[in-house]
């Protein structure tokens, strides 16, 4: 997977490049709009990450121009602005996504995966999820671990399903709030943690290997190995 990162801040370039490579992406960098335009038109990229505040042009204008030039790759917009501009919303509806700075790396990677998945041919919707000895029946809304039926509430099932779908990857608290509860809020209390503790109490029974791991400073991971 080849990505083009359009970002002028060297500090941000550096750590993004490193974490993208760690996640298995090959990334190239453009520090301004002009370079970005040349690179994007010449090279075949699977995805573009574009910061809105470029030194020579507005990020949105760059995206619109690239679209005119026939660049079809999806775009993840990075914005340090306070409010989400109407044009960004327009792009979001066109299949692109945005992320406000500062962001958690896990969230950036999750959004990248989502955007890349959209461009792949649709996979048959599964009715069963399986992670190690954990099994989720999506039709009957039932979960079992090692053959033991788990008594989950509706909300806990949705939360576990989200963790399963992202098994092996870090999900942050704000990703959980966004995906499971449908709200972009930043509670300054431990509301998500308590839900995870409760879920963990049901999923990781006595004597079983813990499945839900806390990644301090990042979020949670459902182990898949």
């Amino acid at each position: 997977m080849r990505l083009l990162l359009v970002e002028d801040e060297i500090d941000i370039q550096r750590f993004l490049l490193r974490s993208l490579e760690e996640a298995g992406y090959k990334a190239e960098i453009a520090a301004d709009g002009k370079t970005a335009q040349q690179l994007a038109v010449d090279g075949r990229f699977d995805l573009l990450i574009v910061d809105l505040g470029l030194p020579d042009m507005d990020g949105i204008d760059l995206i619109l121009r690239l679209r005119q030039l026939g660049v079809r790759a999806p775009v993840l917009i990075l914005s340090a602005r306070r409010s989400v501009d109407d044009r960004v919303r327009g792009l979001e509806q066109g299949g692109d996504d945005y992320l406000t700075k500062p962001f958690a790396l896990a969230e950036l990677l999750a959004r990248l995966r989502n955007l890349l998945r959209r461009n792949l041919p649709a996979q048959a919707e599964t009715t069963k999820l399986r992670v190690l000895d954990l099994e989720l029946d999506l039709l009957r809304r039932e979960a079992a671990r090692g053959g033991r039926h788990l008594q989950l509430t509706q909300q806990e099932f949705v939360l576990l399903e989200y963790l399963c779908r992202n098994a092996g990857r870090v999900v942050t608290r704000s990703m959980i709030l966004d995906q499971v509860w449908g709200m972009r809020i930043q509670p300054d209390t431990n509301v998500v943690d308590v839900h995870i503790y409760r879920l963990r109490g049901k999923v990781d029974g006595d004597g079983q290997q813990p499945l839900i791991r806390t990644m301090r400073g990042a979020g949670y991971v459902l182990r898949d190995r």
Partner: peptide, 8 residues
């Protein structure tokens, strides 16, 4: 953003 990224 840069600080958070580096820390992470």
């Amino acid at each position: 953003t840069a600080i958070r990224g580096k820390l992470e």
